[in-house]
Structure formats: C-alpha cells, structure tokens
Computed example of a mutant assay.
Amino acid sequence: MLLENLALFLRIVRHGSMAAAGREAGLSPATVSERLAMLEAHYGTRLLTRTTRALSLTEEGRALAEGAPNLLSEAEELETRLREGVSRVAGPVRISAPSDLGRNRISQLLDGFLARHPAVSVDLHLSDGYIDLAAQGIDVAIRYGDLADSSMMVRALAPSARIACAAPAYLDRHGVPERPEDLTTHNCLMMRFRGEVDRAWPFIVDGKPRTLLLTGDRIANDGAVVRDWCIKGHGIARKAEWDIAEDIRAGRLIPLLRAFEVPPLRLQAIYPKGRAQVRRIKLLLDALVAEFATG
C-alpha cells in the first residue's frame, strides 16, 4: 500500500489538486484524503499544507516529492526483473527535451531505441522552459548549459554553440551582417525563457566580451517556432548548433558571425540520483552519448 500511496501523492503534487488526482486514479475524495493521511502517518509528518484555495508542499513533502519517483521506478524495475528476468529491458521512461532537439533528433533516436527494446515505453515531453523533474516524474532531461540543481546527476553529450543564422532569402533582401553591431539594423527573432525575452546576445569582439541588446518583431517561447520563422526568411535568430545542424547542411539556414561567437554551452543529460542504476535508463543514457558522439 505504501507504493500506491506514494504514487497517489505524486499525482496530487503534479495536479496541485486532491480532487484532480482522485479523478485520474478513479478514487473518491474521501479515499484520497484517507490515503494521504496514511502516508503522513507512515512518515510521521505533514506533507501538504491545505487551504480552501490551494495545496502547498511542506519541506518534508518537497523532499518526498523529489525522492518518491526514484523509489517507485526502482520498485517497478525490481518487479519487472523478477517477473521477466534480468536479461529483459522493460518499463516506462519519461523524457524531457528542448522542442527543436526533441522533434528533430531525440524522437528519431527513440524510434531506434524502442525497436531494440520493444518492452520499453517512452513518454516524451517537449519544452524550452523550466521543468521540475522530480514533481513531473521525469527520468531523463536533455538540457543546454551548466547544471544548477546539485541533487541531479549529469552525462555530458556534446558541446553546443549558439549560432546567429538566417535564411538565404532574408540575407538577399537585407544583406549579410559582417560584425555583431550590424545586427542592430536587422530584424532579430527572439526566444522567451522563463518569462524573460532573450534580447541580449553575447559576442566576442576584438578579444573582449560584448553584449548587444537587439530588437525584432517576433518573440516566442518555443524554439521550433523561432526556427520556422527563421527558415521562412522573417529575420535573424540565435539558435543552438544541434537544433539547426541539418538546416545548415541543407542550405536552409546560413550561419553568421562565427568568428565572434562566445564559447559553446554543454548539451547534457540530467537525471535523478540512482536512476542510472535502472537498466532501461542506463541504456538510454548510453544511446544518447553515442548519438551525439557521431556529430
């Protein structure tokens, strides 16, 4: 019953509502309340603060929300191994990836991975914004940049520059910028990250860092939309190298100002501690490393 109650607790956290969690699990409100009370009694502490308007996690509840997905996954993996044998790779994997990279590369990698391991299922979440891995039950997240959360583990995949780029049609109409400051006269296509518009584009000019505040007529919080605008010739974008590598090879986009780029970010796989011990997760991490090693 403890594992079932943990799963119900994570549903409550994910939905922010006991009623919604109960509907998803097919349980009455009274049963949800009873099982939450059993879980709190088991751990000897309150996990949620409940008001008439909202639920919020206590410190103990937050710690349980971070650790419970590991407990459930490990229990599920153990059951699978006992029932089906240690040689078989089986069970669900929840993955989070940036929108462009997820559509253009990760989804294809997963096709091959599932063909090799047909007893595995995947749940792919595409987002360019912040994701709470523990609350969402994510097993592996693929992200650009350094890791901020020290509770997570990392497998480095590849360096990834952010490249200014534009479609040939746009450059034919408006000219090719020769230096970063030339961008101030161009229409720049912007990304929004965590509510902030990425207007400040960094460069290295004459050996020194320089940041330009740029403007444009289009902003989106989805990298795939910005890429599409760029390919259609609406302006200049600054995109991660892995997002547009195929577009550059195909001539749909032209890289710009490469001599002025700042050092590349890291593309990496992030996962909760202990998840790499689960066989299907380890094999997926190995497949990701191999995929990006090929270029």
Rank of each mutant, 00 (worst) to 15 (best):
Glu59Ala: 15
Gly137Asp: 03
Leu10Asp: 07
Ile142Phe: 06
His125Gly: 04
Ala166Arg: 14
Ala240Cys: 00
Val13Ser: 03
Asn187Asp: 15
Pro92Ile: 04
Ile204Ala: 06
Asp228Gln: 13
Ala240Glu: 04
Ala169Glu: 14
Gln136Ser: 12
Tyr144Ala: 06
His117Leu: 00
Ile219Lys: 03
Pro159Gly: 05
Tyr170Arg: 11
Trp201Val: 13
Arg249Gly: 01
Glu246Phe: 01
Ile131Trp: 00
Thr294His: 14
Val278Tyr: 11
Ala276Arg: 05
Leu2Cys: 01
Arg23Lys: 11
Glu24Leu: 09
Met190Arg: 14
Arg280Thr: 00
Ala259Glu: 15
Ile236Gln: 15
Ala41Met: 10
Asp286Glu: 15
Ala158Ile: 03
Ala119Cys: 08
Pro168Leu: 12
Pro29Trp: 03
Ala54Asn: 10
Val262Pro: 02
Arg50Cys: 09
Cys188Ser: 10
Gly137Gln: 05
Thr45Gln: 02
His117Glu: 00
Val86Arg: 14
Leu57Cys: 10
Val225Ile: 08
Phe193Trp: 13
Arg11Asp: 15
Thr51Asp: 02
Leu6Met: 05
Leu147Trp: 04
Arg210Ala: 11
Ala115Val: 10
Gly145Thr: 00
Met191Lys: 11
Ser96Thr: 09
Gln108Tyr: 11
Ser28Gln: 03
Leu288Trp: 01
Ala37Tyr: 10
Gly175Val: 08
Cys230Trp: 07
Gly216Ala: 09
Ala169Val: 15
Arg11Cys: 00
Val93Tyr: 01
Ala237Thr: 14
Ala30Gln: 14
Thr52Met: 10
Gly26Cys: 05
Ser73Leu: 13
Tyr43Leu: 07
Leu71Met: 12
Arg50Tyr: 04
Leu213Lys: 15
Ile270Met: 11
Ser151Thr: 15
Leu114Gly: 07
Ala237Tyr: 15
Leu109Ser: 01
Ala25Asn: 08
Glu241Arg: 05
